[in-house]
Amino acid sequence: MALLEVHDLHTSFSTDDGLVRAVEGVSFSVDHGRVLGIVGESGCGKSVSMLSIMRLLSMRQASTSGRVMFDGVDLLEASAAEMQNLRGREIAMIFQDPMTSLNPVYRIGWQVAEAARIHDATLSKAEANKRAEAMLTAVGIPSPRERLASYPHELSGGMRQRVMIAMALINNPKLLIADEPTTALDVTTQAQILELIRTLRTDLGSAVVFITHDLGVVAELCDEVVVMYAGKVVERGGVRDVFHAPQHPYTWGLLGSLPGRNLRSKRLFSIAGSPPSLLDPPTGCRFAMRCIHVMDRCRNDEPALVSAPGDEHFVACHLAPEIRNDAANQFPGGTA
């Protein structure tokens, strides 16, 4: 059994304008030691799914249903105390903005050590500090002992993200959820953080769920990938299958609009329009109104995930497999 199995996750928010269905029927799984990338544009529900899994959304506004099995425990059914015990110990999470994710009024050392002390009441202050220092060393922070006494604002963005990673990994979690951890960073700093995550994953054997809007980062780091659009999974599979034989028109659009992959083409491929409002999503396929291959059926029937060429490769699209495969063959390195 996989470490994390998410079945049919739904999350909605009640707002003054009505019910926003942010996540609708998302399913995926991650194994020990694997990196799963979740990719999609802003508002597609990728972050919300992760916050739902961690139960970090305010219960007053958000309601979540589905089944999230982590190491034999259904996270959506677990008690608040059980969740508290799992968070930070078995499942850790790092966030997009390292500037705001650390508490500005506490020292780095205190914040990192706190993550250890919360889960081990017997740990003395000195021991916790020692572990914090070792963690700062492990994530490549120079002169870690002095840094323990620094406040977050005294560090650069890249260093702060390293501190966040140190804090997340101090209890050797089985699963690390990384929510756009490099988006706010410069490209050379991003390379450093990606490198760090690659090494730590090999060293610790943790599973990683990596959320990003950057397909390049997915290609660099991930084993499997889930493509989300407007609250739904539209395609899912091994990273090579999805990049070399993409099956969903939205994935084609995403890959086609990357300037780095399409140097020779006259114009960049672009997806017209913008994603639908999740207050009142269209019936049928949610991508239909932007899809160049749209058929009548797409506007009425919602496509289910069906098997596509490759191992564990699924797509939610009504197009005939032959058409999809023909289109997929036009992508570089196509194998389908």
């Binding site: 050379t188 390049g216 997915v218 990049f243 070399h244 992959r261």
Partner: peptide, 15 residues
């Protein structure tokens, strides 16, 4: 270094 740091959207080349 900048060129090398830029993520390449192709898993074969990237990895």
């Amino acid at each position: 270094a900048l060129l090398s740091a830029r993520p390449v959207p192709d898993p074969d080349r990237a990895q």
